[in-house]
Simulated scan of single mutants.
Amino acid sequence: MAANDGIIGTAGVLQGFAGAGASSTTLLVASVSAMVAGAVAGFGSKYAELAAERDAQQALIADEASDLASDDADELADLAEHFEERGVPGPLAEEVASEMHRHEPLAAHLETEHGITEPMRALQPLAGGAMNALALASGSALPLLILLAYPAAWESWAVFVAVLVSLAVTSMLVAVSARTSVPRALTRTIGIGAATMLLSYLAGVLIF
């Protein structure tokens, strides 16, 4: 999906400049600038998102650890009550809670009450940001390659067609891997891509 964003974003910028009658050199500069800016922004947004999620996890972990240290019995009762609320009979809920509490009390509370099975590691926000930036840059590189490969008279159309084909391929891969509807994924992604390029081109024409 990040690659799709890179494809659409850079293609939109190129179509806007093409609509304004920009030269090949200007289109090249615009394409590289869009790729770099998109990758940096993609890194920053993903890093901030994951870092905030990790901060929230760490706060929950600290709260649970503090609660266990201050009142272990009350936390055990809360764990048993959690299972009872989900339909487990009282005696069995207490037995399960007691067994989980005996082995790894903090992990048991984090997973059962907050859905945290594995706390996010310190480097995960950086790794996630880097992967998102790489995906965006990879997507942005396609319009750039088309720009370098085709004569100036065909650049706008070549980018338009190549972008739609690329979006179709990536959308199918995403839909198949997620086991969702391929036709719906194609319709959404190709529609957004085509609309972005057409509106960007129109904006360039009107401004010029």
Rank of each mutant, 00 (worst) to 15 (best):
D74G: 09
T196E: 05
H114W: 13
P91D: 12
S156G: 09
V32A: 10
A51V: 00
E75H: 13
V165G: 06
E53A: 14
L147Y: 01
G38L: 06
L60F: 08
G191R: 03
V161L: 12
L68N: 08
A39G: 11
L164N: 09
R179F: 08
I192A: 13
P105T: 13
D78I: 10
A127T: 14
S140W: 05
V29T: 10
E113I: 13
H101A: 08
I7G: 00
A41E: 00
A52I: 11
E84I: 09
D71A: 14
S177G: 03
Q124T: 14
T112H: 13
L167P: 03
D55R: 14
M35R: 03
E64L: 10
A93V: 05
E95D: 14
D67Q: 15
W157R: 10
Q15L: 15
A133K: 06
T112W: 02
V174S: 09
E49W: 09
A3H: 03
L27T: 01
T10L: 07
H103T: 15
T170K: 12
A41G: 15
N4M: 11
L68D: 04
D63E: 15
A149I: 04
V40N: 04
H101W: 06
V205A: 05
R121K: 14
A41S: 15
A130R: 01
S66A: 15
T196M: 05
R54F: 06
V159S: 02
H101N: 06
A175M: 05
P119C: 03
S138P: 05
G12V: 04
E53H: 06
D55H: 14
A2Q: 03
G38N: 05
V159I: 15
R188I: 13
A69E: 12
L142Y: 07
A141T: 11
T117V: 12
V40Y: 04
M35D: 06
G12P: 10
E53C: 03
A2N: 08
T117P: 01
S177T: 14
G42S: 10
A108M: 02
E113G: 01
L27Y: 01
L92D: 07
L27W: 00
S200D: 09
K46F: 11
K46N: 15
A59Q: 11
T112G: 01
G204D: 00
G129A: 11
T25Y: 06
Y47F: 15
K46A: 15
A133R: 03
V161R: 01
A93L: 00
N4F: 08
L186H: 01
S181D: 09
T117F: 12
L206V: 15
P119S: 06
E95T: 13
I7W: 04
S166H: 02
S98D: 13
I8N: 04
L173W: 08
E95M: 14
L136T: 12
A69D: 10
L167K: 02
L123A: 14
